[in-house]
């Protein structure tokens, strides 16, 4: 999909410790990621030497209880946070070496985010919220197209205050995918929604994953969702406890929680 040429000059440079690409090159590769927070006198180990890889087009569900480190992990590979030690690579670029400007560029060009609380601009309509991103993206799709993909073609001129929670979250997904990102990072996207609405959001996410081929990482503490993933990664106490691959993926309508 993307290549090193999309990186701004000065940030370019091969990630030396990444192995030479094999058949399916990893989109993400993390090695020994550690994150330690210090709150007052207390030191909290949020991540303990996490190794991880994801390949292009993969739909990965990350499971784990609160405080297991899954959000910290997502924030670091999403370029929102930096690790205390260890490295993370996106394609052939070591993102843990980037400065604020480089990380901003990385988020802007390659990452789509979806969060539990939507984080929409209340002053912009659905269409305008999506345009916000397409205006600064390198190769965006049309805002209307993105909204149609999440099933909101009829409500594009509504403000967030006029939309239900599920609709707002789907606007957020449309906003995340409209830039045609290589990766889609979702942190508890159904966390604030009722099950029926959650299903709609999940369907939207899976459809986007299939259509655009964006590597999708979905954080949840809801174990029911694991059946939808190609692969399930379990977090606990700041480390990856296990990884499972689903032989058969279920459709969102087949799961219940």
């Amino acid at each position: 999909m993307s290549s090193a040429t999309s990186w701004p000059a000065g940030l370019r440079g091969a990630c030396r410790w990444c192995p030479e690409p094999v058949a399916a090159p990893p989109v993400f590769r993390a090695e020994a990621l550690t994150k330690t927070y210090r709150t007052g006198e207390v030191e909290v180990q949020a991540l303990r030497a996490v190794d991880f890889e994801a390949t292009a087009g993969e739909f990965v569900v990350i499971l784990g209880p609160s405080g297991s480190g899954k959000s910290t992990f997502l924030n670091i590979i999403g370029g929102l946070d930096t690790p205390s030690s260890g490295r993370a690579c996106f394609m052939d670029q070591e993102i843990t070496k980037l400065d604020d400007r480089g990380l901003t560029r990385y988020r802007r060009d390659h990452v789509g985010f979806v969060f539990q609380f939507y984080n929409l601009m209340p002053s912009l309509t659905a269409r305008e919220n999506v345009r916000l991103v397409t205006e600064i993206a390198r190769r965006p799709m049309k805002a209307e197209e993105a909204l149609e993909m999440v099933g909101l073609a009829q409500r594009i001129d509504h403000f967030p205050a006029q939309l239900s929670g599920g609709e707002q979250q789907r606007v957020a997904i449309a906003r995340a995918i409209a830039k045609n990102p290589e990766v889609l990072l979702c942190d508890e996207p159904m966390g604030a929604l009722d099950p029926a609405t959650g299903v709609k959001v999940l369907e939207a996410l899976m459809r986007v994953n299939e259509v655009t081929g964006a590597t999708t990482l979905v954080i949840t503490h809801n174990a029911a969702i694991q059946d939808l993933a190609h692969r399930v990664v379990r977090f606990g106490n700041g480390a990856i406890l296990g990884v499972e691959t689903n032989a058969r993926r279920k459709a969102p309508s087949e799961v219940s929680w």
Binding site: D100, R107, D109, F113, N119, I136
Partner: peptide, 16 residues
């Protein structure tokens, strides 16, 4: 503040 921080997440630069 919340909206502006969200924009930063979306890849808007500090100046933007």
């Amino acid at each position: 503040g919340r909206e502006l921080a969200s924009l930063r997440v979306l890849g808007f630069t500090r100046s933007e």
